[in-house]
Nucleic acid binder design. Structure first.
Lengths: 120, 120
DNA sequence: ACAACGTACAACCACATGGTTGTACGTTAG
DNA sequence: CTAACGTACAACCATGTGGTTGTACGTTGT
């Protein structure tokens, strides 16, 4: 569990998701298994381009491929999607930490105001 | 609510998050307000580079800046982070749809098997 | 007043990215 | 057997990205 490896995975996740074609491919393969050529027919670009998008999603671990004859069937990995979501939840937690630190600050100030009278 | 605008926003979100320096900046400004130069001191790169990263996060709506004298104070926008999370939850929903469709398929097959005896 | 600070932005560079076409190879259908 | 299909990958190209340095300008402290 290297620190840098986590960041590498996050880089791959978000980079893979930062393209609308790839997000659309991911939606389709999460909803059901599709061959690469079937996917390619849905987009106004070459088969090779779509194949590269699928490869990016695969390298990021967001989808897996299995061979069936001459076809490569792609399937979305919902666990990976959840991992990305978890990372965002962690970010939210930092924000909540800020809020509670503000509460502490208010509490301290209130205490200080009270004790100020006894100071000096 | 243009269809393409949503995709544009998503592109900006995920692209902004696809860089580890920007994710680290976002963590810091979610945890509390920081000036750009304060942030810049944390990284082994020029001020201008960090400033550009902050600009990317700002354009994506993940942080906001306010001016105080000569400083620009950056603060993370947790609502935007939640929006990104919501988008992933929508992806999960597609996956759950696949599962329930599989359930339907099983149900149909079971029914078909029963009715098979009456066919012919 | 003026030097130092914090910010913004333009110009530039090396490299990554998203697209193309072409080639090769195993698999399926006729 | 042979032709068509589905896939994989290399080579190439235009554009985008992440970094740099330099310049300009308002703000702050002495």
């Amino acid at each position: 569990m290297n620190e840098t490896e986590d960041e590498d995975r996050a880089d791959a996740w978000f980079h893979a998701l930062a393209d609308r074609t790839r997000r659309d491919i991911l939606r389709r393969v999460l909803a059901g298994e599709h061959s690469v050529s079937t996917l390619a027919q849905s987009y106004d670009m070459s088969f090779a381009a779509v194949q590269k998008h699928v490869a990016v999603l695969e390298r990021a671990g967001l989808l897996t491929k299995r061979r069936q004859g001459r076809e490569a069937l792609a399937s979305g990995d919902v666990a990976a999607v959840r991992s990305v979501g978890a990372m965002l939840t962690d970010l939210e937690a930092l924000w909540r930490g800020r809020i509670s630190r503000m509460d502490e600050l208010f509490a301290e100030e209130a205490t200080a105001t009270h004790t100020d009278n006894q100071k000096d």
